[in-house]
Structure formats: structure tokens, C-alpha cells
Amino acid sequence: MKTEVHLNSPALAVAMKGGAGYWRRQWPLYIMMIIPMAFFIVFRYIPMAGVLVAFKDYNIFKGIWASPWAGFDVFKEIFSLPEFYKALRNTLMLNFLGLLTFPIPIVLALMLNEIRVHWYKRVSQTLMYLPHFISWVIVGGMAIELLSTNYGTINQMLNAIGVPAIPFLEKPALWVATYVGAGVWHSAGWGMILYLAALTGINKELYEAADMDGATRMRKTWHVTLPGIKPTIIVLFILQIGNMANIGFEQPYVLTNNYVSDYSQVISTYVYTVGIQSARFAIATAVGLFQSVVGLILLLTAELISRKINNQGIF
């Protein structure tokens, strides 16, 4: 039997009253959402119109809309440039090496979680995540002052004890190790904070049950702690795989030099060199679009694999 709700029915009056009460209670939240929504619309969605530059014979004086269409000619040109493949290779290589350091924040969080001296734990936590707030310009200057072959502090100490200077920033292999190490120092502490936050959500009764069963600390870590933060690990791992084709501009730019340019030139610095210094805006836009598409494909692939294996993902 179909139930009819008349305009003057008590049920409709209660529903309308409840809806009015909801908006009366929640309207400040919707007002606060206007600012982040405006940010994404103005700085994320409207600039997407600039993607058209990748498909046009762009003329800065004519503008985006008046410039003639070029189809996929710009993409054909970048795929014929050896510098593009070199930048793509370096981007994937450095990001893959960074991916190998993914467990470091997890290990730091697990170690810090086992510390029972609260003041020592707070001080250690602060010292480890503080580098995240230091600009890469400052980090690059610190690296040069410490690792420079001629006047770096570390090499001066080595020379003082009779050890030859080590060209940390001049040999490609040593530069790559320095790059990865600087990235770990800069970001591992921040990742550790995310895992510490996830650790607080684990049910304490699970540890008590493990104690009653006579589990050691290692057993509790393996069977209670790691499964408890598994969703966080999966989400962050998927996001990092999705960023395999993307790389920040500041770190490779401030750490590069002429000795290692064949290994330090990545897509972000290549876009800067081609787009800003050479004023080839169409090529720079096409490279950036290619980078975004590859990153999206990697993200969706990692999500699909995670769904198949663990039935967990970010979507």
C-alpha cells in the first residue's frame, strides 16, 4: 500500500523542522567551506584551460584562444627530443630510489612508539619532523657547505686526518645517494607523524590480550601494530606510486650542478628550462600534461592492484 504524505501532515512538518534545524546548526561549516572551494576553483580548475596550449601553435601575443591549433604536433616534437627521455629517466630513477626509502618513516614511528620516557619522546619527535619545515633552498645551502669537495666541512675534517676528499656533489653515484639521503632527512619525520597518528587509533585491548598470551614486543608489533596501521600504509604507498612521474622542482634544482646535470635534470627542471628560459611554452605544457597523465595511470594501477590483493584502496 502506498503511503501518501499530505502537505499538512505531522511527518512532513517534523521533516521540515528537522531540516531547518540542521541548517541552523551547520551553516558555519558551509560558510567555512567557501574559502577552500574558491581556492581550488581559482588556482586548480580555472588554470586547466591552459592545457590547450599543448595542442596549439602558441603565440604569447595572440593568447591561448587566438593561437592556431596544432593537434598533436607538439607531442610528436617532445617525443623526438633526447633531452625529454633523459629527464623522464632521471625522474623515474630518483622517485624509484625514494620509493625504496618508504619504510623508513614506519620504522621511526614504531621505534618512537616504544619509548616510554615522555620528555625524550617529545624531543625526539620534534627534532625529526622539524626539517620538513625548512626550505629546500636552505637545505641545498647546508648540503653545499657540508659536502663541497674543496671547502665542505666534512671533507675538511677528512683531509685533517689524511683521508682524501670525497666528491659527494660531483660524482653521479654519490650525488644520487646525497639526493636520496637529503630527501629522507627532510621528509621522513613528517611521514613518521602520520604513522604515529595512526598508531593512536589502535585498540589498547589488543595489546593487553597479546600480553596475556605471552607475546613479545616483536610479536605485538608484527601481529597488532602493523595490521593496525595497514590502511594508512596502503594509502600513502599508493599516493607515492602515483607520484612516480612527478617530482618537486626545488630539491633537484638547488642540488644540481654542471658535473651531474645528466642525472639531475628531471621533468620539473626540464619544464623550467624549456618553458621559462627558452620560452617554448607549448612544449613545456605538453610535457607537464604528459607527466600528469602518466601519474594518473600509475595511481589507478596501484589502486587496482591494492584492491585485488588487500581489498583496500583510496577510492
Rank of each mutant, 00 (worst) to 15 (best):
E114K: 10
E114H: 05
R116K: 15
V117C: 04
V117H: 14
V117A: 13
H118A: 13
H118W: 12
H118G: 01
W119N: 04
Y120W: 14
K121F: 15
K121R: 13
K121S: 10
R122V: 11
V123S: 12
V123Q: 09
V123H: 12
S124Y: 08
S124C: 14
S124G: 06
Q125D: 09
Q125K: 13
T126L: 15
L130F: 15
P131I: 10
H132N: 12
F133K: 03
I134T: 09
S135P: 01
S135Q: 02
W136K: 09
W136C: 05
I138E: 07
V139K: 00
V139C: 03
V139L: 01
V139W: 04
G140N: 08
E145C: 06
L146H: 07
L147Y: 04
L147P: 00
S148Y: 04
S148A: 08
S148R: 01
T149N: 09
T149E: 07
N150C: 07
G152E: 06
G152N: 05
I154Q: 05
I154R: 08
I154W: 05
N155R: 02
M157R: 01
L158R: 08
L158G: 05
G162P: 02
P164Y: 12
P164S: 15
A165C: 06
I166M: 06
P167R: 06
P167M: 10
F168P: 01
L169V: 05
E170H: 04
P172K: 12
L174Q: 02
L174D: 03
W175F: 14
V176E: 09
V176S: 05
A177D: 02
A177Y: 12
A177I: 15
T178I: 13
T178R: 06
T178K: 03
G183S: 02
V184L: 06
V184T: 08
H186E: 02
S187R: 00
S187Q: 07
A188G: 08
G189V: 04
G189F: 00
W190V: 05
W190L: 05
G191V: 10
G191D: 07
M192W: 02
M192L: 04
I193Q: 00
L194Y: 02
L196E: 02
A197H: 03
A198D: 02
A198E: 00
L199F: 01
G201W: 06
G201S: 07
G201C: 06
G201F: 01
N203R: 12
K204C: 05
K204G: 12
E205P: 03
L206F: 13
Y207F: 15
E208Q: 11
A209M: 14
A209G: 11
A209L: 11
A210Y: 07
A210F: 10
A210N: 04
M212N: 10
D213G: 09
A215E: 03
T216I: 04
T216W: 05
M218E: 08
R219I: 07
R219S: 10
R219A: 13
K220R: 11
K220W: 09
K220E: 09
W222C: 11
H223P: 00
